[in-house]
Every structure is written in structure tokens, then in C-alpha cells.
């Protein structure tokens, strides 16, 4: 079953029409930009970057909540 599914993917991608290949290229470029450029470089998770433990994150947010912005 898995082998058959794998074949569908392999053969399918091999015989993609030109517009299909263009779409695939757009998808791959988009995912690369999103995960590498945006997620890793530009938009890291703020709390994960600043704090290591959940307790520290809680403290940070509690301080915001208590000391009104």
C-alpha cells in the first residue's frame, strides 16, 4: 500500500505538466521563504526566544497583566 502510494507520488511528479511544475516550484519557494526567512530569521516566537522555562514565560505575561500597559 505504502509502496503504491510512493509510486503515485514519484510517477505523478515525474509526469507533471509544465504548469504543474511551475506550481510545485512556487510551493517549494514559498515554504522555504516562510520557514527559513520568516519563521527562523524574522519572526521567531518571542517568548521561546526570551525565556527557556514555562515558569519564566508565565512570570513575564503575569507582569504584563498586572502592570497594565
Amino acid at each position: 500500500m505504502l509502496k503504491r502510494l510512493w509510486n503515485i507520488y514519484c510517477e505523478g511528479f515525474r509526469h507533471l505538466p509544465r504548469w504543474g511544475r511551475l506550481l510545485l516550484a512556487i510551493v517549494l519557494a514559498k515554504l522555504l521563504i516562510m520557514f527559513v526567512v520568516f519563521k527562523l530569521l524574522l519572526m521567531p516566537d518571542y517568548l521561546n526566544k526570551q525565556y527557556t522555562s514555562d515558569q519564566e514565560k508565565s512570570e513575564h505575561v503575569l507582569n504584563i497583566l498586572i502592570n497594565k500597559p
Binding site: 516562510m34 519563521k39 524574522l42 519572526m43 521567531p44 516566537d45 518571542y46 517568548l47 521561546n48 505575561v61
Partner: peptide, 8 residues
């Protein structure tokens, strides 16, 4: 991504 970065 924005939830984590802008709306933490």
C-alpha cells in the same frame, strides 16, 4: 507565526 512574534 504572528501569534508567536507579535501577539505573544
Amino acid at each position: 507565526f504572528q501569534f508567536g512574534s507579535n501577539w505573544s
